[in-house]
Design a protein around this nucleic acid. Structure first.
Lengths: 289, 289
DNA sequence: CGATCGTTTGACGGTGCTCAATCACCGTGG
DNA sequence: CCACGGTGATTGAGCACCGTCAAACGATCG
């Protein structure tokens, strides 16, 4: 019901007529340095010297690859809008998703010491990125302490997010991983000023499964479990969080929904109406292993 | 729980008599800026202006806590020697290990944007860290482009390592996770100029299990599996990699040791002598899920 | 020597992976 | 317009892996 209306649909591109597909548009206008600083999380006031400097801005179509793993890299990218997936292709052909970076995040900074991209970056929706050649970036940072501090802040946040990612994946039960993933996604939506409860996931079940380290069928089932418990309302990629506390409780327990939610498979048939059948118990005691 | 022996003791520490325990020594000499730059991975030649500047250097005893989660943070640390574990204590009391940073890695940079440590950092062995107040660091970076570039390089590497961490944890089978963990550890040893095959793990099974998101018994069993397959020689925390290719092959398959290694539990009794009983089959085809 | 903790191993039960079929949605071509 | 193929999502059946509980062993420290 949702996918048709959205402009930026897709993994394998539904909604994007094959005709207008083209990798990525070098054109588009340019951005201002002050906007970049604000995006990175720096202080809003453009105290820097070169506040009105312009920066190349690229538009990336949904499904297009911004750069490939192993490619020569001499610039870093900062996402202005849109969501990407960073992935590495293992030698058996399996696509390992490593992150779903979004607005404000820095792409390809790892390449700074190697000269080559460590991952591929594919846009999951229409996106827009700043392109910052490292030489130029170093010069600008030297000249403008505000930009410099903003970049440091962004890198610090990114390292923090990496920790959150590990925490997310370290959960043992599949539903717990999914719950943590959803809360992670929700908090990012909140940071962006969008609704933290109404989530429009732009990635496929398979991509989520790859990141979480489970089978994609298990992701589907876990969605069903959480929905069956009244925590979520799931309609394909349109997910609504109904019970934040319950979800958080599920997240906390290292072992899946404790005995208070006896792991019943979701109602076959009408998943919609049966949502709040059994409201989540507030959570009693969570066990550690 | 373990807090009785307070001054930074923790589950695993053998080898440090309780008598000489004391949190962390503020004293110790100071380090030179050029050494720090080299440690961070910068160009060796100290082209910077203030190459002989001195930096406070702290010694951290094995088991001591360098900083606590949530603590106010106004400086970052760079590990000169030793290994730490970064952890967060979930509210059910479970200790979630997030990383095992080692020499050359930056600790606490996430706090740059929040002002508070995102994790606790506990030394797993005798360690030594540079202490860099952020204000001072910013000033030094401004004055010395070599230091600045070195720090950028270090941060880039660290982000790359975060990706490797995700890749490690995304494996579905437990032995694959452990194999990836061992190869990760091995490559770090190699970077440090130490033996990549003879590993002296300074962390407990429980810590490894926490990071990998499995039960600690499973870690033990997986060690047994890999040893039974002739890939490893395991003696408590003293691990020797016997067959790098086999281990890498195991690593590659998203699904654990393929059918060529029929997952036999290790020989009960003398695990030592029975190591190379059945040499690892070279690996035929790995399947993806 | 006894206490404590880390490591290993066993047994059992449940979760989740595999294989497979089905449905829904979209784009293409008749 | 509708049949057809392709992809994503969901659901089921079967079984192996792994988490839980339990016990035993070893090392270290008091």
């Amino acid at each position: 019901m949702n996918t048709t209306t959205m402009p930026g649909r897709h993994p394998a591109d539904r909604g994007v007529p094959a005709a207008q597909r083209c990798p990525l548009l070098p054109a588009a206008p340019v951005g201002r340095l002050s906007d970049l600083v604000r995006l990175l999380g720096g202080e809003a006031q453009g105290a820097g010297a070169s506040c009105d400097m312009t920066i190349p801005l690229w538009r990336v179509r949904s499904g297009a690859t911004l750069f490939h793993e192993g490619a020569h890299a001499d610039s870093v990218h900062v996402i202005r809008s849109g969501t990407f997936k960073c992935l590495r292709t293992l030698q058996d052909g399996y696509e390992q998703v490593l992150a779903f970076p979004g607005p404000g995040e820095v792409l390809g900074f790892e390449a700074r010491c190697g000269g080559h991209q460590a991952t591929s970056a594919v846009a999951l929706e229409e996106a827009c990125v700043y392109v910052l050649p490292v030489r130029q970036l170093d010069r600008w940072r030297q000249a403008d302490p505000v930009l410099d501090r903003a970049l440091m802040t962004a890198l610090g946040r990114q390292l923090g997010r990496a920790g959150a990612m590990v925490e997310m994946m370290a959960a043992v039960a599949a539903e717990v991983r999914l719950a943590r993933f959803l809360l992670w996604f929700s908090s990012r939506m909140a940071e962006l000023g969008r609704s933290p409860s109404r989530l429009l996931l732009c990635m496929s079940r398979r991509d989520i499964a790859s990141l979480l380290g489970v089978a994609h069928e298990t992701v589907s089932r876990s969605f069903g479990m959480l929905a069956g418990g009244g925590l979520l309302h799931v309609d394909n990629r349109d997910v609504e969080i109904l019970d934040f506390e319950g979800l958080r409780a599920c997240t906390h327990s290292t072992r899946g929904l404790a005995e208070e939610m006896p792991r019943r498979p979701p109602r076959t048939g009408g998943a919609k109406a049966a949502a709040a059948s059994q409201a989540a118990v507030p959570l009693a005691g969570t066990v550690l292993r």
